[in-house]
Amino acid sequence: MQNISAAAPVKKGKRKSISYDKYGYFFVAPFFITFLIFQLYPILFTFYTSVSDAAGWDKVLHNSYAGFGSFQKLLDMGSDVAPFFWGSLGNTVIMWVCNFIPQLGMALLLASWFTDSRLRLKFQGGFKVLIFMPNIITAATIGMLFMSLFSYPVAPVNTLMQQFGVASAPVEYFRSVGISRGLISFLQWWMWYGNTMIIMIAGILGINPSLFEASLVDGCSSRQVFWKITLPLIKPILLYNLVTSLVGGLTMFDIPHMMTSGNPNNTTNTVARFIYTQAFTTPNNFNIASAASVILFAIIVVCSMILNAFMKDREPRAARLERRAAK
């Protein structure tokens, strides 16, 4: 009898100790396998090819170490490629800034309206869907669409302009630097402000409502609430948006590639397009393209670190002094 009763709890204990933990690894395995093969390995390979002589397809796998020549070429402004690389970086920054500032402004404005308890906007869901919609379409598709809309001389925009009497003759939009860059910035803005807005709304909704209530009781204006409560408290979200947008902006490719192919005169050529043309059109300078990717990577890391330091949630000066005094 005793034997049985002694055995039972042991059995029970065994059953309890059956662990399902390992299944967790199975579930995350596909991600890690894919990540290792298609992300980490190519990244390391890029670092390697940037210091090799891998120019042309036949040398990609049969290359040898060639030092930092590719970096030297890209950093020495007297070389053949450097002006194109830095020129494309300049274009990218211009188009990114022109898209990002209005994007952040628009997203903040809309987010504060949508979350304002005093406004109580109707059809919020509908508006949010409409505003987010452009983000669902592939950038390449939008690039193609706008290329046909604005092309020359027979195209919808030109026809409309002439019918409304705005222009007397067809205009070559894609031969104007301002219009070409403006359109690219506009499309980036149009595609992404909805996304930024959704993240901002999430950030604002995460703020403790009692703060807003307290401000109402104290008689703050909407403007004061925004500048003194909302903005300081969504700083981490702002930082997140800034960094993701910076990464996305500096690697901008689809829209300029599909719409303008870098024209007119390389003024809409972005760094990602520069890397693409070096690597994937004859004669396939993989070493230079890899070196450019590594430089771009370094630029993004440094910019993100600067932003991070700049936006860090600092303690108020008084509190810091107090803490020091207590020590």
Partner: peptide, 13 residues
């Protein structure tokens, strides 16, 4: 001149 510069940048050899 622009064409030659672009060719030189694309074809190092």
């Amino acid at each position: 001149a622009n064409f030659k510069a672009a060719v030189a940048a694309q074809f190092p050899e």
